[in-house]
Amino acid sequence: MEPSRIPARLDAQAGLYRSLLTGRRMLVVLDNARDAEQVRPLLPGAPGCMALATSRRQLTGLAAAEDAHLLTLGLLSRAEALDLLTILLGLHRTAADPEAIREIIDRCAGLPLALAIVAARAAAQPGLPLARLAQELRLAESRLDALDGGDPASRIRAVFSWSYRALHPEGANLFRLLGLHPGPDIGLPAAAALAGVPVAELRAPLTELVRGHLLAEPAAGRYSFHGLLRAYAAGLVATHDDAVGRAATRRVLDHYLHTAHRADVLLTPQPHPELLPRPTRAPRPRSCRTISRPKPGSRPSIRCCSPPCGRRRPPDSTPTPAGSPRRSPRSSTGMDTGGRWPPYRQPPWRPRDARRTRRARPRPTVASAWPRTV
C-alpha cells in the first residue's frame, strides 16, 4: 500500500487494517506488547483471523473487554529445564556433569532466557567445563554478569531493566527495597515497614509489581521473587543512597522485633513486661490477639532476620557491656526463634487461657531457665 493512502488518525488506521483482513485467514502475532492499549488497535475483527499477543505484563484489560483468553507461563520445573539444556547442549554433555547441571538449573531459577544464555556460552566454548559456569553463577555479585549473551536481547540485566523502567516511582522504589529483605518471602505488614509507608498505600505498588511479573504472590498476602530478580534489585539498591537501604533494613527488623515481642507477651503474660523503644517509622505491629497464630510461610522470614548468638551487632545498636553474659537467641518463654518449645519443656498453660489466668498465676518458673532477650 502506498504511504499516501494510510490515514493519519489511529482509529482510521485500525479501520483500514481490519478491512484488509476481511475474507482472509490470518494469525497475527504481537510480540512483547507494552500494554493492552498497544494491542487493542491491532486485533482483527474479521472471522477466521486470530491474534496471539505476548507481554511481560498481565493483559487483564483484554480479557475483560475483548474476551481474550489469558495464559500465564511460569518458570520451568527442574525436569523441563533439564530437557531444555539437553536439547541445546546434547545428552553427552549434560550427562557428563550432572551436579553442575543441577546447580545451573537452580541458579537460573528456571528462567528460560537465563538457561538459554548459559547454554549458548557453553556451546560457543566446548572446552569450557560446566562446573566453571556453575561457579560463576554461585556468586551473587557476578551472577547477572555471567548471564550476558553479548547484546541487549540476550543480556539478563537489560531484559529486567525493560520491565523496571516501566514502573511508577512508588513501584520502582518498593522493588529496590525488596532486594534487602533476607527471607524467602515477605508479608504485607513487613513490606510496609520496609518501605516506611502505611499498608493502604502499599497495595497499588505491590499490584503493579505482580502484574509486571517482577513479583509473585504464591499465597495470599505473601510475596516473593526468584534469585535473579533479587540480585538485580539488590544491585539497584547499591547504586542509590546507601543510607536509604540501611534505614529500610532497620525498619523491617524493628517490625519483626516488636511483633515477636508482642507474641512473647501473649504466650507468657508477665506482671511487668519489658518495654521496647518505639519503632522507627514503621506500621504499628498487630495486636496480640491477631498474632497468636503465625501465618504459614512467615516462620522462614523471621528466622532469617534472627541472627545466631555471637553474630556482630548492627553498627547503630547499643554494644553489649564488657563482662556481661552472652544472651541466648531465645525469648523469655523458653521458645526458640522458630516458635517451638524444647522437647524437655512444656508451656505453663495454653495461650488462650493466658488472659483469664494472668492475674491469678505468678510468673512461670520456665522463664528463669533462659536469659531474657527480645
Rank of each mutant, 00 (worst) to 15 (best):
E136D: 10
A191K: 04
A114T: 04
R250I: 00
Q135E: 07
C305R: 02
A231R: 08
I6V: 14
V159Y: 10
S4L: 08
E2F: 03
E66Q: 07
P285R: 01
A68H: 06
V199S: 12
E103F: 00
R311F: 04
A51E: 06
G339A: 04
A166C: 05
R293C: 04
L71W: 09
A51L: 12
P343R: 05
A64W: 08
D31G: 06
L206I: 11
G323S: 09
E99A: 15
L130W: 04
L85C: 05
L215W: 04
R361S: 09
A81M: 07
Y344R: 08
W349H: 04
A360M: 12
R102S: 15
I302S: 11
R132P: 00
A109M: 05
G127K: 00
R299M: 12
A109Q: 12
A248Q: 04
L85S: 10
A322I: 01
D151G: 02
A263E: 06
R132V: 02
D35R: 01
L215C: 05
R211F: 14
G221A: 15
A260N: 06
G196E: 03
L209R: 09
R289Q: 06
P44E: 05
E99P: 03
D241K: 05
T280K: 04
Q125A: 15
L253R: 12
